[in-house]
Computed example of a mutant assay.
Amino acid sequence: MNARTPRGLLTGALHAVRTYPRRSPLTFGYVVLLLLGHVWVESVLAADRADALRDHISTNLDNLHDHPVTALFGSALLFDGTLTEVLSTGFGSTLITLGLGVCCCLAWTERRHGSLRAAAVFLGGHIGATLLTAAVILLALRHGWYPQDVRQASDYGISYGAQTVLALATLAVPRWARLPWAAFVLAWPLAGGGGEWPGPLPEFTTVGHLLAAALGFALAAAVTLTASRRRRSGAPGSA
């Protein structure tokens, strides 16, 4: 059967879905955890308790000073978006971060580099971009570029980690599509919230997404350089 025919494409898609948990067990488990957490917070917890939980795990300056570990890891267990309001920008964000970023690009990273490295990339992007953004916020506050209430701003979710693996997945697309893909990775945060510029810098979450993308692109460049060196040296596994 030709894989390019509609029937072949459908068969391939069904096979990919059926084998997804086995081929990407870490990603599959993480997606299930995120979905369960979303349902719990949105549908089971009382509204005031849900708001208190989101406030507690937000990676703002006050929380990073008071309980950094809880904020950094807790914020990666919920996604800031919606699964039901399909016409909202929140649903578009969910499609990009949870759908494309985690379900697709994190799964590709896991299959390509292994579960431990995939987890390291995702958490490294999430934590690294968060801490770099905190440094930018401190600098902006010192110069009066951001309002003081940014210290308690709500900022939780998976999007920084997702942005990092989206950038790394530039290596997964054909060479002709890599520049458009990179442009998409950089453009969607600017389109979503980049219109708000309280000063010489965009809104701080936009800064965070751009920093997360930079981490992913840097890692992609490092992977490419390492592979090129192995090919030139004829190292085992370089093919």
Rank of each mutant, 00 (worst) to 15 (best):
residue 116 L to N: 11
residue 210 L to R: 03
residue 233 S to H: 14
residue 21 P to T: 10
residue 107 A to R: 04
residue 159 S to P: 01
residue 96 I to R: 02
residue 76 A to V: 09
residue 121 V to N: 00
residue 183 A to M: 11
residue 10 L to F: 13
residue 116 L to C: 07
residue 138 L to H: 15
residue 159 S to D: 07
residue 102 V to F: 05
residue 95 L to H: 06
residue 112 R to M: 07
residue 94 T to D: 11
residue 86 V to E: 08
residue 7 R to W: 13
residue 21 P to D: 04
residue 50 A to T: 05
residue 29 G to S: 03
residue 127 I to V: 15
residue 130 T to Q: 04
residue 223 V to C: 07
residue 72 L to F: 05
residue 179 L to E: 03
residue 128 G to V: 03
residue 32 V to Q: 05
residue 91 F to R: 06
residue 94 T to H: 05
residue 103 C to S: 13
residue 222 A to F: 00
residue 8 G to W: 08
residue 182 A to M: 13
residue 32 V to R: 03
residue 174 P to C: 06
residue 36 L to D: 00
residue 165 V to K: 00
residue 69 V to L: 15
residue 50 A to W: 07
residue 106 L to Y: 01
residue 32 V to D: 02
residue 236 P to Y: 11
residue 134 A to F: 04
residue 191 A to I: 13
residue 64 L to E: 07
residue 66 D to K: 06
residue 8 G to A: 11
residue 206 T to A: 09
residue 82 T to E: 05
residue 47 A to D: 14
residue 84 T to I: 11
residue 67 H to S: 13
residue 227 A to F: 04
residue 119 A to H: 01
residue 25 P to W: 09
residue 148 Q to A: 15
residue 41 V to P: 01
residue 188 W to S: 05
residue 143 H to K: 04
residue 68 P to R: 05
residue 133 T to I: 09
residue 22 R to M: 12
residue 87 L to A: 15
residue 57 I to E: 03
residue 118 A to D: 04
residue 75 S to H: 06
residue 231 R to M: 07
residue 129 A to R: 00
residue 221 A to S: 11
residue 12 G to F: 07
residue 103 C to H: 02
residue 92 G to M: 10
residue 228 S to R: 15
residue 17 V to C: 12
residue 206 T to K: 02
residue 229 R to F: 08
residue 153 A to G: 11
residue 45 L to E: 13
residue 179 L to I: 14
residue 20 Y to I: 10
residue 162 A to C: 02
residue 68 P to M: 10
residue 195 G to C: 01
